[in-house]
Simulated scan of single mutants.
Amino acid sequence: MEIKLTVGNARLDFTDATVVHDLLTIDVDLGIGGDLLLTTRPGIVVVADDVVVRMGDLRVRPPQQDPEFPVDLRIEVTGKLRGGDLVVRYPRGSH
């Protein structure tokens, strides 16, 4: 999946996603004012180690993975932040 944003926001909500693959790669290019919010649930892990941050914020909180929830989906985020923010969060009350 490729997401390119400038002066606009996008939200991807995976809380009720039906997972049929174990890996999703998202390549981002977030310009000034282009913010991306990913909302996940237990069983989905987001890794953003390969995102280059020039300007903007990268906030990926590690999940508090419960052993009852095996990892169903790994989301690997790559690309660059050129002024936009990438935030990963979990539904309120999920931890």
Rank of each mutant, 00 (worst) to 15 (best):
I3H: 03
I3M: 01
I3V: 10
K4H: 07
K4N: 11
L5P: 03
T6H: 09
V7S: 15
G8H: 10
A10Y: 06
R11C: 08
L12I: 13
L12R: 12
D13H: 09
D13A: 10
D13F: 06
F14S: 07
A17S: 08
A17V: 08
A17Q: 01
A17P: 05
A17T: 11
T18V: 11
V19L: 03
V19R: 00
V20K: 09
V20E: 09
V20C: 01
V20W: 06
H21Q: 14
D22L: 00
L24F: 04
L24A: 05
T25E: 14
T25Y: 06
T25W: 00
I26M: 03
V28R: 01
D29I: 00
G31C: 09
I32A: 14
G34W: 09
G34I: 10
D35W: 06
D35M: 04
L37V: 15
L38I: 13
L38F: 06
T39L: 15
T40Q: 04
T40W: 04
T40F: 07
T40M: 07
R41A: 12
R41G: 08
P42G: 08
P42R: 10
I44H: 02
I44Q: 02
V46R: 01
A48W: 10
A48F: 11
D49I: 06
D50S: 13
V52D: 02
V52N: 05
V52R: 07
V52M: 03
V53F: 08
V53S: 08
R54W: 01
R54V: 04
R54K: 06
R54F: 02
M55H: 11
M55D: 13
V60P: 05
V60A: 06
R61Q: 11
R61W: 01
P62V: 03
P62F: 01
P62L: 03
Q64N: 09
Q65G: 01
Q65E: 01
D66K: 00
P67I: 14
P67W: 10
E68M: 12
P70C: 15
P70N: 14
V71I: 05
V71M: 02
D72Y: 07
D72R: 14
D72G: 06
I75Q: 02
I75A: 04
I75H: 01
I75R: 03
E76H: 12
G79N: 13
K80P: 07
K80T: 12
K80W: 03
L81H: 11
R82Y: 12
G84L: 02
G84I: 00
V88D: 09
R89L: 01
P91I: 04
P91C: 04
G93E: 09
G93P: 07
S94C: 14
S94L: 15
H95C: 12
H95D: 15
H95Y: 13
H95L: 12
